[in-house]
Computed example of a mutant assay.
Amino acid sequence: MPAPTHQLIASPFLGEYLVVRPGHESGVKIKAHHYIELRQAASAGIPLPEWLLGAAARRWGLHLGDRPSSEVLLIRDPSPYGHGRASYEVNNGCNWACTHCVYGDKRHEGLAWEARERLLRILRDAGVLWIELGGGECTIDKHFPETYALAYDLGMMVEILTNGSTLFRPRMLDLLTARRPYRITMSIYGATEATFDGFTQRRGAYKKFMRGLGAAREAGLPLSLSVVITRENAHEAPAMRALAHRFASRVREYSHMSPSFSGTAEPLAQQAPEYLHNRTPFTGCDAGHTSLNVSPFGLASVCKVSRDHPIPLLKEGVAGLSRLGEIADRALQRHSGCSGCTLQKTCTTCMPLVTLYRKAGSPRDRYCQWA
């Protein structure tokens, strides 16, 4: 796959306009008339305007000279739909067997390439600029290289969620250095080989993780690390934090396990009670209105948690997403015992997640203040 030539993307995004650079998190907000100017420059093949050359040099240290705009700039067309972000579960399958995992059964299921290509173009047409590719473990999917490359080539800013077990492979490194993601997010499950391998139930998992982590850092890829703390590894929490900060500047910590997406309770049993803490109140989100989740079978839902009334994108196309906002609003409405709760304004759990906890038979104190 020859690498694309675009080094910048000019795109509408949620009622505004951005110029972003693949492989980098930061962007430059521009006015509507500047976006029109860039469209005209790219169409005519003339050099980039001076104001953008200056902005690119200041923001990214990128010096583009007088090259034609069409060689270095990809223009994203406006979309009548307002979905700027999406997560796409490439495949449910995984090469590890972590018991805390919310994906439950890890079957290697996903779309054939032709359908997947259509799906990515639908997401592009929906206005999606930032896309997260995950799973399961997305990098072991047989169509991952083509999926990743097409998302990038269509002008999407790509993040991948991976366990890191394949990042040291030359073909994977070639793919990710030729088409840089803006973020690679990996999870730390232990600071020693015994704990890590026990957590994943796979001998050699720690060695592969560390090898992939080291290879990604050596290649200069942007890393984000999640420290996942459960009953099985809580004794190594300080060492896991130290490991994370040694390799990445962006570190997140997770100790509240959720039920699986099908509502089974296995992940809840892995919670370390001493690491459960008060969370911030849930005050609403834009899921379903400006963002969406897509299952391995092309079903669009409000988010990874709220999966009721999915929209078959391959059947309905981008127009089907017009219903997603209404589905999201209904999903967030408090019902059953929550409808008259006087603590709603300080509740830390959204209604779709409450529903999963109830379905899993979780103790109420894991999700409800009344308990």
Score class of each variant (00 low, 15 high):
P2Y: 06
Q7G: 10
L8K: 01
F13T: 04
V20M: 02
R21T: 04
V28A: 09
I30S: 12
K31W: 14
A32N: 09
H33V: 11
H34I: 11
A41T: 03
S43F: 13
G45W: 10
G45H: 07
L48S: 05
A55K: 04
A57V: 01
H63T: 09
P68M: 07
V72Y: 03
I75P: 00
I75K: 00
D77C: 02
G82M: 11
G84R: 04
Y88L: 14
E89S: 10
N91P: 03
N91K: 08
N92P: 00
R107G: 03
H108Y: 12
G110D: 04
A115K: 13
A115I: 00
R116E: 15
A126G: 08
G127F: 07
W130V: 09
L133G: 01
L133K: 06
G136K: 02
E137C: 03
K142F: 12
H143Q: 13
F144L: 11
E146N: 15
Y148K: 09
E159K: 14
I160A: 08
I160W: 05
T166I: 08
T166C: 07
T166Q: 13
L173T: 12
A178P: 02
R180C: 00
M186S: 14
M186Q: 15
Y189P: 03
G190F: 13
A194Y: 07
T195R: 02
F196T: 06
G198W: 04
T200S: 10
Q201G: 02
K208G: 08
F209A: 03
M210D: 08
M210V: 14
L213Q: 10
A216W: 10
G220P: 10
G220N: 10
P222Q: 05
L223E: 07
L223P: 06
S224R: 15
I229K: 09
T230R: 07
E236Y: 04
A239R: 15
R241F: 15
F247L: 07
S249L: 08
R250H: 11
R252P: 01
H256I: 04
M257F: 09
M257G: 01
P259G: 08
P259R: 09
P267F: 10
P267D: 06
Q271H: 03
A272G: 05
A272M: 13
A272C: 15
E274F: 02
E274A: 14
Y275Q: 07
H277D: 11
C285Y: 00
G288E: 05
G288L: 06
P296S: 05
G298A: 01
S301Y: 03
V302K: 01
V305R: 05
H309L: 08
P310K: 10
I311L: 14
V318Q: 01
G320A: 09
R323F: 06
C338M: 06
G340T: 12
G340A: 12
Q344V: 14
K345E: 15
M351C: 05
L356C: 07
Y357A: 10
A360R: 11
S362R: 05
